[in-house]
């Protein structure tokens, strides 16, 4: 009974577009309607999409994303570990595109040397928790996202319970040391993992499926042995690799064929070269 009236209220608040096969609703009216019927914004969004009512914020996703794909995104839960250079841009893209739920983990705090590339870090947020800054950003960018924040450096023991409740793992870690552990845990949970890693103006991205090939040979040694310690990390390549990771995540969530499975894409933002290599 309540559901029916929620739907009729949604219809009253939505607009017909002459050239689109769906109705649209503004964020503010969808939030208001959700509030009246005591639904979370996240749940209200899913119900609206299923009733063929597209939140107006996603209008320019169409027709690249079908309504069905928009629903798959809204119903997905992504585990994003690392909220620095790669993670900040990945979160920005996925939240705006319409991923419904996130688990966001990072125990670090912003430092001035992060500001050349980390979109969540600002002059005002130096010293602040990366995870809490991510939460603030996501609330401001897309209030229909649910985000569970974990402001800690995760260890081996904490991972299984967190990973199990998600659909996809995105490795946006800084440093090489913890990456093999995360990969191993994603594989044990039977989930795909999309990894990205950069140094200087060179960056790589790869998708690893359980029992598939992985780029773990790049992660030999400890955190100090990665080339990034010598070369730094340029915003150009960090944002590019994050975009590639986010694109692959959207493909996988919307049931497309992954492009980087058993492969690694190498990009260089100085030479503007791209190469897809077989692992």
């Amino acid at each position: 009974m309540k559901k029916k009236s929620f739907h009729s209220e949604l219809r009253n608040n939505s607009d017909e577009l002459s050239d689109k096969p769906f109705q649209t609703i503004s964020s503010s009216l969808l939030l208001q309607t959700a509030d009246i019927f005591r639904l979370s914004p996240h749940q209200a969004q899913i119900q609206a999409l299923k009733a063929n009512i597209l939140p107006e914020r996603y209008l320019r996703n169409t027709p690249s994303l079908s309504m069905n794909k928009q629903i798959l995104l809204a119903e997905s839960r992504v585990f994003l570990i690392g909220l620095g250079g790669l993670g900040g841009y990945i979160l920005e893209i996925l939240a705006r595109t319409g991923v419904g739920e996130f688990i966001l983990a990072d125990g670090d705090h912003f430092e001035e040397s992060n500001l050349n590339r980390q979109i969540l870090g600002t002059t005002e947020s130096i010293g602040q928790s990366k995870a809490f800054e991510a939460e603030k950003r996501i609330k401001s960018v897309n209030p229909f996202c649910n985000a569970r924040i974990i402001p800690e450096f995760l260890d081996h023991s904490a991972l299984p319970a967190l990973i199990q409740s998600t659909d996809l793992v995105i490795d946006a870690l800084g440093g090489i040391k913890f990456r093999p552990t995360l990969l191993d845990q994603a594989s044990k949970a039977d989930l795909p993992l999309i990894t990205g890693f950069v140094a200087g103006t060179t960056g790589l991205a790869s998708t690893v499926y359980p029992q598939g090939k992985s780029p773990s040979a790049f992660w030999q040694g400890d955190d100090l042995q990665g080339a990034e310690n010598i070369l730094g990390n340029m915003a150009t390549i960090v944002s590019m690799i994050a975009t590639i990771q986010a694109s692959e995540a959207i493909r996988i969530i919307t049931q497309g064929t992954p492009r980087l499975r058993d492969k690694v894409l190498v990009a260089d933002s100085e030479n503007l070269t791209f190469e897809l290599l077989e692992l």
């Binding site: 250079g85 890693f197 990034e228």
Partner: peptide, 10 residues
Amino acid sequence: LGIFPAIGGG
């Protein structure tokens, strides 16, 4: 031939 060192920045 393409060769890489250890890389892990993010």
